[in-house]
Amino acid sequence: MTTKANVENLATLSRLLLSSEEKAALTQEVDAILTYVEKLNELDTSNVDPARQVHGVKNVYRKDRLKASQLRDRLLELAPDREGDFIRVPLVINQDGE
């Protein structure tokens, strides 16, 4: 059966680990949902700009001022694993970042 989306690739891309049952069910569901939303293709949108936002608010800025947070300790307490004030994670193998 050909499906619209490769759920396995999508799961990898979105960092989800799916059991084979989940994969099977989700493949079907995702396919059904995509089929449903493809209803949009019936719509002629050639002369319509995509909605940017609904309420026209623009140009919202803050001044370049320091606002030191009093919450540093509480933030660090949230971390599941720490070493001193660092957050500890398993070794990052591909150390390239972006």
Partner: peptide, 18 residues
């Protein structure tokens, strides 16, 4: 993520990613 999220959340993440 897989242990933390329920099925509907996963479904929407996959659709959204797609």
């Amino acid at each position: 993520r897989s242990e933390g999220f329920g099925p509907e959340v996963k479904r929407r993440i996959l659709i959204g990613t797609f």
